[in-house]
Design a protein around this nucleic acid. Structure first.
Lengths: 337, 337
DNA sequence: TTGAAAGCGATACCAT
DNA sequence: ATGGTATCGCTTTCAA
């Protein structure tokens, strides 16, 4: 059994109250007592029991992270950001997966409530109205990261997908592209799907280019989705885009992998633009031009917002974080231009 | 304030003891009482307070993960594996970073001891004797994942780096390669460095090929290390390997990126073999041939071992997990052959 | 400056 | 089948 405050008290010849005061530097004790207590605590390897502290203080200084099981490469960056901020504020981070398509979501959230986390950051989780109702009943602050709830019923930290898609498409147009495909997008996805489609089409329209639904290749943001999109593009020469805007870096790599097999040279014959700027983007060959989401910072911001809100008892405000266009090696002017 | 067991007891008109029995399905109560209690608990949104449970049970059902801050792409897979296994066993997972080069290591471990985690899984952390001594003093089970302590003072789960490097090199030799470079390796790294060098050299020797120190390009397993290695190779035409065995997938991609810039075609002019089979390997162009480490399973195994040991109070045994050679598109027979 | 003691929310033993 | 209550380790009033 581990040493407790009582052991320290007994050995030091003082009361537990005094030991507690010394250990927490609350003042109101003589210097020699302090020295003694500290020495004893160290000698017997005393460590505070946070369960007991949490119980009496009614605060666990813990925040929870819930995320889908699927492990796209950028989650590590987000977690890093959250954990670093939390750590600095003296908070612990507990982690659970919501399973694929949220099957474990409510179970996970419940788990965390029992663990008495003070707040939860939900990464990339899509919520429907039922979820939302149940979450309200949990009575724990939930902040969304890279996600958004219907009618903004929950605060979020994310980039503006519409603006990012608009800027990305506009960038491609400025390079001289006129036939630009959009690949891997899920049109039923209210958060990252529809806004990106809308931004893409708006940029096209603003440049007097007529959006063409045949240039939109739907998918689920994966590598495989990119491969399928590119295969479809090759299969239909009448479509012949000069650039493809992929909705994720992984999708972009899927596109590129098919081009490689088909002998299509990038960026000479086809430009490819990714989305995320995950670690793989910089390591791809050729290095992937992409829309950067500042994942690490997003994690930091989310944790900070949560903790500040907890400490000041204020409501968490949503925040749109800036994206950035990173030009590397996969976008060039179109050949025909 | 959240509802407690007392509230449930009061409203149901029974004692807290009975409520506890019902909630934990311990038997020893009438069916109508059970129904009543459950209904009340649900109605007032009662959730168990795990801090209180942990305190009285002297068990937190929590395991901690400590890992370096640097976020190579496979950490997500490891965490997924750990979390899934832990979740199934009813355990929570708390996560902290040890900072770069372990600066935050002991602080993190201490944090976890105060949180009363029942065991800690240390991912990719290199320990020296001082660390080890302090860890012993913490008196908490520590299992290493993808790491190994001096003199095997701590149990571990990892692949056999020597054997993997041996097999990989042998594979390259069988393909007809005779001049094989080793890139990105840290020769001062006892865990992943020296064994791989040794395995590589042993395979060479076994095939009557004389190991050549000029073919070993040291580094720190990163993308940049791969780039530097390849630049060095190009700068010294007298070395001219026909294959390079990179110590990580990222390093392999670094090698490939320089080849691309230099117009060296892979695998026609140079074969490249990676190590890890992280998510990026399959998505690279051309797809990377590599030595696979089963990260997700390693996470699962580690968590299972830890939890089993906790529950059966037995000592954790080390385990060498199998690696696998994954042949994709970056290794071919040498041109000159 | 210091200590006694009440509680935090649950469990589990001992009665009844 | 049910209730009373000591207990887990700590913080925090209230007194002294």
């Amino acid at each position: 059994m581990r040493a407790t405050i009582k052991d320290v008290a007994r050995i030091s010849g003082v009361s537990t109250a005094t030991v507690s005061r010394v250990l927490n530097q609350l003042g109101g004790y003589g210097p020699e007592v302090a020295t003694k207590v500290l020495a004893v605590a160290k000698a017997i390897g005393y460590r505070r029991n946070d369960s007991a502290v949490s119980l009496v203080k009614q605060a666990t200084r813990t925040i929870g992270i819930v995320m889908p099981t699927v492990t796209t490469s950028f989650y590590a960056q987000i977690i890093n950001g959250i954990e670093d901020s939390a750590y600095q504020a003296g908070y612990s981070v507990i982690l659970t997966h919501a399973g694929s398509s949220n099957i474990r979501l409510l179970e996970s959230l419940n788990f965390m409530v029992e663990r008495r986390v003070e707040g939860i950051i939900g990464v990339s989780i899509n919520l429907n109205q039922t979820d939302l109702t149940q979450i309200k009943a949990l009575a724990v602050p939930l902040l969304l990261l890279s996600a958004q709830a219907p009618d903004d019923q929950l605060p979020y930290v994310k980039v503006d997908d519409y603006q990012a898609a608009y800027a990305a498409t506009r960038f491609l147009i400025k390079q001289g592209h006129q036939r630009i495909a959009l690949a891997g997008v899920d049109p039923s996805d209210l958060v990252a799907g529809q806004p990106r489609i809308a931004g893409y089409e708006a940029a096209l329209t603003a440049a007097q280019l007529r959006p063409d639904r045949n240039l939109i290749f739907t998918g689920d943001y994966t590598f495989a989705a990119g491969q399928q999109a590119m295969q479809a593009i090759i299969a239909r020469p009448e479509v012949a885009p000069t650039a493809v805007f992929a909705v994720s870096d992984e999708t972009a790599l899927g596109v590129i992998s098919i081009c490689y097999q088909a002998g299509i040279e990038i960026p000479r014959e086809l430009s490819v633009l990714g989305y995320d700027n995950s670690a793989i983007a910089a390591m791809a060959t050729p290095a992937l031009s992409t829309v950067a989401q500042p994942f690490y910072q997003m994690g930091q911001i989310a944790a900070q917002k949560m903790i500040t809100s907890l400490q000041t008892k204020t409501v968490i405000t949503s925040e749109l974080v800036p994206f950035k266009l990173i030009q590397r090696g996969t976008v060039a002017v179109p050949r025909s231009n």
